[in-house]
Design a protein around this nucleic acid. Structure first.
Lengths: 341, 341
DNA sequence: AAAGCTAATCTAAACGTTTCGATTTAGTCA
DNA sequence: TGACTAAATCGAAACGTTTAGATTAGCTTT
C-alpha cells in the first residue's frame, strides 16, 4: 500500500480510504490510485488488516472425519453458506481423537478465527472450557456437550431410531442386533435409548448380547456384525448407528455367505447418494443435511453479525426413515426358524 | 503479551524470547512468565505473528466439489499431511465454476496463504497468471493447466481408460457408450483419448453417437445414459468418466427397467468405499488417492521448506482397474441380439 | 472581505508480535 | 582491582493496515 501511495503521490490513508470507500476521494486521485494499483499489482494484505480491525472473516470447523458422508455433506453446505457470507473456512479433522481435537481448536483459536463450529469427539476439559469462555461464538454440530449450553443444532436421534426400530418390529423382527459407537457422544446415547424404548413399547426385553459397541469405523462395524451373526441365536435384523460401520456390517454379511435382506435385514443411520442405486437398496435414516448445515451456519452468522446477547439456541431437526428394500417382513414363525438355524 | 509482561514484571521481548525459546531466559523469569501466562490465559496472536514473520503456516486448497468421493478422499489425505506438518488448511469449493475459482484463489492469496493446491476447474487468464507469477508456490492437483508448468501430480488417465476399455472389448463389447465431462480440463481430454485409442487398436471405428458430454454432475450422467440407452442401436456397455455421473447413469438404467450387468455393463472412473459391498459390485478405475494426496502435500511442503529453485516437477501416478461384477462377457452373437432388441 | 462550512487529504498512532542492537549484570582473568 | 567477556534482559523499530483527528483548500454567507 505504501508503494501504491508513493506511485500515486498520495498518502496511504487516502489509498485506504479509496479501497474501502470510507471517505470520498476525488476523481483525480481515484484515477491515480487505481492506476498505481494496477501497475503494481497490489493486493491488500488481509493479515495486516485483520490485526488492525480485529476480525479475520474466517471461521474454524472441526469434524471427526470428512470421509463420513454425513460430514462430507454438512461440511459442503456449511462451506457454501460461509462462502456466500464472505467468510473463509478452516477445516480440521479430529479423527475421533480427543487430544487431536484440543490441538485443532487451540490452533484455530490462535489463528483468531471469528467463530467456531465443532462436531466434537469425546469429552474433555479443554473443550468445555473453550466453549464456555472462548471469546468467539461457537456452535455445536450434531454432538452436544453435557452441561454446556451454547448454540447447537442436533437431530432428534431418539425419535429417529425409535421409528426405525418400530418399523423393524412391525415387519415381525424380534431379535434386532444393534451396532453402536461409544456412549461418550450424545447421538450414540440418544440413538440407543430410541432402540431401547422401541423394544420396550413392543413389550420386548432388552437383550444385552444383541448390542455391540465399536469406534464408529468401518472395521468396527465388520467385527460387530461378525459377532452378532455368529451368535447361536442369530438376529434377523441389524441396525447400525452410523454409516461407515454399516459398510463393515455389509461386508461381514457378504463374507459369511449371507445375504441382505433374505437372511438379515439392515437399517443404518445416515443416508448416502448411492443408497437407492445399488442392491440391496439400503433402508436408512436420512438426516436433513442441507437444513443442518444451513441452520448451523446461520446460527453462527447471526452471532458474528453482532447478536451476542440472545440466549443460546438449541435447534432440533427430525430425521426421516427412507424405506427401501433392505428389510424383509418376517412371518410369525420365520423368526423362530431363523433363530434355530 | 503486554499484559503477561506486566504481570511477570519483564519486558515483552523477554516474554517473546521465552515463548519461542529464541534466547535463554533465567529460571526465575521463566517461572514468573509461565505463571502469568497461566493466570491470564494468554494465547499468542498468530495474526500479529504472521504479519511480523511473513508466513501464516496456512495453505489454501481448492477443489471443484468436496462431495465427489475422489476429492473427499484426497482432501482428507492432504489435510492430514499438512496437519502433521503444522499447517492449517483453508478449504474452498469452486463448484466447477470458473469465476468462483478466481474469487476463491484471490481470497486465499489475500489471506496470505503460504502455498496453494489447486484442483482447477475450467481455464482462465486469472488462474494462469496466478500460477505463473504468484509469489507463493502452487501445486496443481489432478488437472493440469496448458502451458503452465508448475509442480503437479496427475494420473495417467490415458492408460487407465485404455485399460478399462480394452477390458470391455475383451469381454466382447463392441458398442461402448462413453459419458464424459467437458474437454476444458485435461483429465477429460486424456480419458477420451484412452477410449479412442483402445477402440482404434481393436480396429473399431469411433462412433460419435456413442459419446455424450455432460457437466460432471449426477444429473448429467442420468441424461447422458438415458440418451445412450434409448438409441435404436443401444450400447452394451457404458463407461462414465467420473463418479457422480455414474450414479446418474445407474439411476437411468434402473428407471428404464434395465439391469446391470445383464442388459448393460458399466465401468466408471474413481472408486468408492461402497463399490464392493452392494450389487452390482461396480468395476471401477481406482486412483491411488492416498499416494496422490501425499505426493501433492510433499511437493508443496518441499517448496515451503525453502526448495524454491528446483525445476518444476510433474508426478504421474497409475490408476488400477478394479474388476468386479458390473461387466458381463458377451458371446459373439449377443451383441447383435442386444442391439436388435 | 472576514468568518464559517464542507469536502478532501494527510499525519500519526495503534493493532500484537518479532528481532536487532543496546544495556545491564555477573563472572573471569591478568 | 580493573578490564574484559558472556549471559540475560530490555528498548524500540518494524510488519501493513485502519482510523481518529488535524490540516488545508475552496465555497458560502453575511
Amino acid at each position: 500500500m505504501l508503494h501504491v501511495a508513493e506511485a500515486a503521490r498520495v498518502s496511504v490513508a487516502t489509498v485506504s480510504a479509496y479501497i474501502n470507500g470510507t471517505t470520498t476521494v476525488s476523481q483525480e486521485l481515484s484515477g491515480r490510485i487505481e492506476q498505481a494499483i494496477r501497475e503494481i499489482g497490489y493486493k491488500r494484505n488481509a493479515i495486516a488488516r485483520s490485526l488492525k480491525i480485529g476480525t479475520t472473516r474466517t471461521i474454524g470447523l472441526t469434524v471427526p472425519h470428512i470421509t463420513n458422508p454425513f460430514f462430507t455433506d454438512v461440511v459442503s453446505v456449511i462451506q457454501q453458506a460461509f462462502d456466500r457470507a464472505g467468510y473463509a473456512v478452516m477445516l480440521c479433522c479430529t479423527d475421533e481423537d480427543l487430544s487431536n481435537q484440543d490441538e485443532q481448536i487451540r490452533l484455530l483459536l490462535d489463528r483468531m478465527v471469528d467463530g467456531l463450529i465443532i462436531a466434537r469427539v469425546g469429552d474433555g476439559a479443554y473443550l468445555r472450557e473453550t466453549v464456555d469462555r472462548a471469546n468467539v461464538p461457537v456452535v455445536l454440530l450434531d454432538r452436544e456437550v453435557d452441561g454446556v449450553d451454547s448454540d447447537r443444532v442436533v437431530l432428534d436421534n431418539h425419535q429417529a431410531v425409535f421409528e426405525a426400530i418400530t418399523y423393524l418390529l412391525e415387519l415381525g423382527h424380534r431379535r434386532i442386533g444393534y451396532i453402536t459407537g461409544a456412549f461418550n457422544i450424545t447421538p450414540m446415547r440418544d440413538r440407543m435409548t430410541g432402540y431401547h424404548e422401541a423394544l420396550l413399547s413392543a413389550g420386548l426385553a432388552y437383550d444385552q448380547s444383541l448390542v455391540r459397541s465399536g469406534d464408529l469405523h468401518e472395521a468396527d462395524g465388520y467385527t460387530a456384525a461378525m459377532q452378532l451373526l455368529s451368535l447361536h441365536d442369530r438376529p434377523t435384523a441389524i441396525f447400525s448407528a452410523n454409516n461407515p460401520m454399516v459398510v463393515g456390517a455389509m461386508k461381514a454379511i457378504r463374507d459369511l455367505g449371507l445375504s441382505c435382506p433374505e437372511d438379515v435385514s439392515v437399517i443404518c443411520f445416515d443416508d448416502f447418494p448411492w443408497a437407492d442405486v445399488f442392491n440391496p437398496q439400503l433402508t436408512t435414516i436420512a438426516q436433513p443435511v442441507q437444513a443442518i448445515g444451513e441452520q448451523t451456519a446461520s446460527l453462527l452468522l447471526d452471532r458474528l453479525n453482532g447478536n451476542l446477547e440472545a440466549p443460546s439456541r438449541r435447534l432440533v431437526l427430525k430425521g426421516r426413515l427412507m424405506v427401501r428394500n433392505s428389510c424383509r417382513p418376517l412371518q410369525a414363525g420365520a423368526n423362530i426358524a431363523a433363530s434355530v438355524a
